[in-house]
């Protein structure tokens, strides 16, 4: 067995309560959106009887819309928190892409995942590869889903509604026609699904193999370190 070296358990408060609550609310809302969104594209088997007996598809769409509003309000709030929260709250919104050291960090993480680098670097916040992945796939992914989603929602609320005037009126011609917006929105869901798979996998892997806690940090807010050597970057 590997000897467990004695070390100080230093802990840093990284994820403030609003960020944590936002994260877990997102988890449930996005899960609901994915399931109901898939069913909107591929409806469950037909029900029999009279139309007045059921409101199944209506409920599926209703859950989709309610969850979407939760994500939208949550995203706006999260954007606000990026300004007023601690520096870690800004990480995924503003990756320092102009800094060479950032890209050096990304490259080192790639080597770590390619199992070339023997040891990962130690980070208080997200590692650079995580930052860039969350920024591109999650932040822009969710912005894309919100914009196309509101454009499709505006089709239902109709001309004259703010959803239609602010979103549908320019998004639909931009993509060609309504059907194309549906298709891109649908593909966007699969991008989010791919992100979720990677996100969960690396969170578990990092929790086990990296030098700091990952999963429990998003629950308690505290980052714990497995060694007391200095951090490479906050």
């Amino acid at each position: 067995m590997t000897e467990i070296r004695v070390h100080k358990e230093e802990a840093v408060y990284v994820y403030e309560a609003p960020v944590r609550i936002w994260h877990w609310v997102q988890v449930f809302a996005i899960f609901a959106l994915g399931v109901t969104g898939y069913l909107i594209g591929s409806p469950p088997p037909s029900l029999g009887g009279e139309a007045s007996d059921w409101f199944l598809f209506g409920w599926i769409r209703y859950i989709h819309f309610v969850s979407a509003w939760i994500v939208i309000v949550g995203f706006v709030f999260r954007l606000y928190w990026a300004f007023v929260g601690n520096p870690h709250a800004r990480e995924i919104f503003l990756p320092p892409v102009w800094r060479a050291s950032f890209w050096g960090g990304v490259w080192h993480e790639i080597l770590w995942y390619a199992m070339v680098a023997k040891e990962p670097r130690k980070y208080t916040g997200h590692n650079p590869l995580a930052v860039i992945t969350m920024h591109v796939m999650y932040v822009w992914g969710i912005v894309f889903m919100i914009v196309t989603g509101l454009a499709l929602y505006g089709e239902g609320t109709g001309m004259g509604s703010w959803q239609y005037e602010w979103f549908s009126s320019w998004v639909i011609p931009l993509f060609g026609q309504s059907q194309d917006v549906h298709t891109w929105h649908h593909l966007g869901m699969w991008v989010i699904v791919c992100f979720v798979i990677v996100h969960i996998y690396v969170a578990v892997r990092e929790d086990i193999m990296s030098r700091q806690s990952i999963i429990s940090s998003m629950i308690s807010g505290w980052r714990l370190f497995k060694d007391d050597r200095p951090v490479d970057r906050d």
Partner: peptide
């Protein structure tokens, strides 16, 4: 200004989840 769907007389079946 509106979709066929918005004024479709079969819309009730859509909301109910009754499909051909």
């Amino acid at each position: 200004s509106q979709r066929i769907h918005d004024k479709c007389y079969r819309r009730g079946h859509f909301d109910a989840g009754q499909f051909v």
